[in-house]
């Protein structure tokens, strides 16, 4: 479906996603919810978002390890296509009470 830019927040290591904003000074926000991220429909926009994210990481030093992941829409929610990123965006499958899944809902698709 598209791509989202993902990173780790420096202060606490939590997984965050990029949302482009209209702010002229800092045109990037880092949000905790995948569904609030901007989804780049094409490669060109994905590259733009990644460049924005990397520039922001460099300038503001608030996130690290910026990269792109593929996402799809399942039941109205965004979901990474790669298994590893799905776990990153949910939390440990063995502790459904921890991580983003504790707020966002479970791991139905990755149970053993």
């Amino acid at each position: 479906m598209g791509q989202v830019v993902i990173a780790s927040r420096l202060s606490d290591g939590r997984v965050v996603f990029l949302r482009a904003s209209a702010d002229a000074v800092r045109p990037v926000e880092w949000v905790l919810e995948l569904d609030a991220a901007e989804v780049a429909a094409g490669d060109e926009r994905a590259a733009e978002l990644l460049a924005l994210g990397e520039a922001d990481a460099e300038t503001h030093q608030s996130v690290i390890d910026v990269y792109r992941i593929d996402v799809e829409e399942v039941d109205g929610c965004l979901r990474p296509t790669r298994f590893r990123e799905r776990i990153r965006c949910c939390g440990p499958t063995v502790r459904p009470d921890l991580g983003k899944q504790a707020v966002r809902g479970g791991h139905a698709d990755v149970s053993l």
């Binding site: 780790s8 606490d12 290591g13 939590r14 997984v15 690290i64 390890d65 590893r84 776990i87 990153r88 939390g91 440990p92 921890l98 991580g99």
Partner: peptide, 8 residues
């Protein structure tokens, strides 16, 4: 202190 999938 490492950085892992969900946190440090």
């Amino acid at each position: 202190l490492y950085l892992q999938l969900h946190a440090y």
